[in-house]
Design a protein around this nucleic acid. Structure first.
Length: 560
RNA sequence: GGCGUCGUAGCCAAGUGGCUAAGGCAUCGGAUUGCAAAUCCGACAUCCCCGGUUCGAAUCCGGGCGACGCCUCCA
């Protein structure tokens, strides 16, 4: 590893918005990486679009750590802003209360999507001293000027202004907004805004006021990551004016590059599924309800859905699209269950290498391991190429497929069961899946249990499976099929295997459907004079504390 | 108007100069199963159009058509 002294993995390339090129990744300080991602303005609940950046940067950090870097990831929270003030007034709360509420919402959403790599969440209101100091430095150096209690950045003093978003000052002859008369140039932007009566404010050399939107990021990134740091991220919609203004402030202040790699994620669009392509999502257009979406779909599905596409692409978001992605995810869950059936071991408890460069698993001459090593190589090549998670996921599917094939061919659930050599190969395959999926933040924990949290459903399902096993034993396939088909409306699926029948699917509402199926089965049994089955249903339900009552209008069930 | 991005199978989506154009979903065959489900095997793309560069282009260049973003708050 000769080049490793300056770059742990010189094969890693990152696209840079500033240069519009992919370039090899070389951190400012060998072995260390600082990442700053623009977080939310917490005036309202988040929508799914707010998760694109956190999810991809969560993967980026995981991958960089895997590659051996020591990574610090910062996400700022904008908790002072016009919209927050308005919202607070509207609701009769303080700005801080509104912020706290939405920060809690944001954090819950991050946790649900498995975003847990963020090291610091600096808040604008907690860095007032740094912000004011930064503005003073710009004023002292002549890049900013005070005007009627406001302070503006003088874009005319910055010869490089517009370089990030590739626009010239001439092209920006807007009317300058409501404060145009206080500015020298309409493109000048506020570093400090004087407070109107009753607005939250902080003391400053220019009187009571609050920071403009862009300055907090310059001040906080400098404070935590330094004057030049490695990666600055955010949505593509932030390139102008937010990041353009950040780079102007920071580079005029420090006279050195602010950031080595500007990495911007693509935006989500709503899929109207009415033939028309939907527009951009935004809270001002009523987008929201991320929490409800997570409740319905689960965080890992959403994360997987987002990672299927390269982070710089636009993604058409719709719930059916998430459900389609989920079908792919299910095949991994099934493989994990299969692994447990064969070895008794839990995929989620496996120990896998956490650092890149572990010895290849292709030690012997097992063709499956050779193919798996190749898939791993391609996975890493994809991630090295500007964090191509979509290409990487394809290799995860490849590995899953190889593993299933191996289980089939070695008949690990039949004649080949218990073969130590085969199981060792299987372990290696599963550990490889674990090692790689870890860098994507996938399959870290088992997904929420089927059937929600209702213990009774599990017990009733055991009864259902026993009844069906009896019917199959007696070659009573009509009853066996009636049971399986009768469960279909509840979303529960039965799978017959050598070791017995397994069930999966369903949700909190499934229990009632299962009970209805049992009640119906009992009635048909009795109609067919099969009193043994009918009585077995009633008696075993009774053991579970469920009472059946035959009434004129039909049978009802109640929990004991 | 200015600055950008994108157009790959029914759908989603990698690949950006050179083997049979990844992978997922759906569909259709086959193995397996009492029947299913799952799993495996197999089938399924003249890469928006036209022109150019090249021995060779989905990939580079020019033109067209179409979709979208930013230029105002936005992840």
């Amino acid at each position: 590893m000769t080049a490793a002294s300056t770059a742990a993995h010189p094969s890693l390339q990152i696209y840079n918005t500033l240069t519009k090129k992919k370039t090899p990744f070389e951190p400012v300080l060998p072995g260390k990486v600082g990442i700053y991602l623009c977080g939310p303005t917490v005036y309202a609940e988040a929508h799914i679009g707010h998760m694109v950046g956190p999810v991809i940067f969560d993967c980026i950090k995981r991958y960089l750590v895997y590659c051996g870097y020591d990574v610090t990831w910062v996400v700022n929270i904008t908790d002072v802003d016009d919209k927050l003030i308005h919202k607070a007034n509207e609701r009769g709360l303080t700005m801080l209360e509104v912020a706290e509420e939405n920060i809690a919402d944001y954090n819950k959403n991050l946790a649900a999507l498995g975003v847990d790599q963020i090291d610091q969440f600096p808040r604008a209101t907690e860095c007032m001293g740094d912000i004011i100091e930064f503005i003073e430095s710009l004023v002292d150096q002549g890049y900013a000027y005070a005007s009627e209690g406001d302070v503006y950045f003088d874009v005319g003093k910055d010869g490089e202004y517009g370089k990030l978003s590739n626009r010239s000052l001439d092209a920006m002859q807007g009317e300058g907004g409501g404060t145009a008369d206080r500015k020298k140039n309409t493109a000048d932007f506020a570093l400090w805004k004087s407070a109107k009566p009753d607005e939250p404010s902080w003391d400053s050399p220019w009187g009571k006021g609050r920071p403009g939107w862009h300055i907090e990021c310059s001040a906080m990134s400098k404070k935590i990551l330094g004057e030049t740091f490695d990666i600055h991220g955010g949505g593509l919609d932030l390139v102008f004016p937010h990041h353009e203004n950040e780079i102007a402030q920071s580079e005029c202040c420090h006279h050195k590059p602010m950031v080595k790699y500007w990495a911007h994620n693509g935006l989500l669009r709503k899929d109207n599924s009415a033939g028309k392509i939907g527009g951009k999502m935004s809270r001002s257009a009523g987008a929201g309800g991320l929490h409800e979406l997570i409740d319905r779909q689960g965080g890992e599905r959403i994360r997987f859905f987002l990672l299927r596409t390269h982070y710089r692409s636009t993604v058409l978001f719709s719930e059916p699209a998430i459900e389609e992605a989920a079908k792919g995810l299910e095949s991994f869950y099934r493989l994990f269950k299969r692994y447990k059936r064969i070895t008794g071991a839990e995929f989620y408890s496996l120990t896998a290498p956490t650092k890149r460069g572990a010895p290849s698993i292709d030690q012997g001459n097992d063709p499956t391991l050779t193919a798996a090593a190749e898939a791993k190589k391609k996975f890493l090549a994809s991630m090295d190429d500007d964090f191509n998670t979509g290409g990487a996921i394809a290799e995860l599917f490849e590995l899953a497929s190889l593993t299933n094939k191996y289980c089939d061919e070695a008949d690990l659930e039949g004649k080949g069961a218990g073969d130590a050599a085969s199981n060792a190969v299987l372990d290696l395959l599963m550990e490889t899946i674990k090692e790689l999926s870890n860098t994507l933040g996938l399959f870290l924990q088992p997904p929420a249990a089927a059937g929600g949290s209702d213990e009774l459903l599990g017990q009733v399902m055991q009864l259902v499976i026993d009844l069906r096993a009896d019917a199959r034993q007696a070659k009573n396939f009509a009853t066996a099929d009636a049971i399986r088909d009768g469960l279909a409306p509840t979303g529960i699926v039965l799978e017959d295997r050598a070791g017995g029948t397994e069930w999966s699917g369903g949700n909190d509402g499934s229990l009632d459907g299962v009970m209805m199926m049992l009640i119906e089965l009992r009635q048909t049994s009795r109609a067919n004079k099969d009193f043994a089955t009918g009585d077995a249903i009633r008696d075993r339900l009774k053991d579970l504390g469920v009472v059946l009552e035959d009434r004129a209008g039909g049978t009802e069930w109640t929990r004991g």
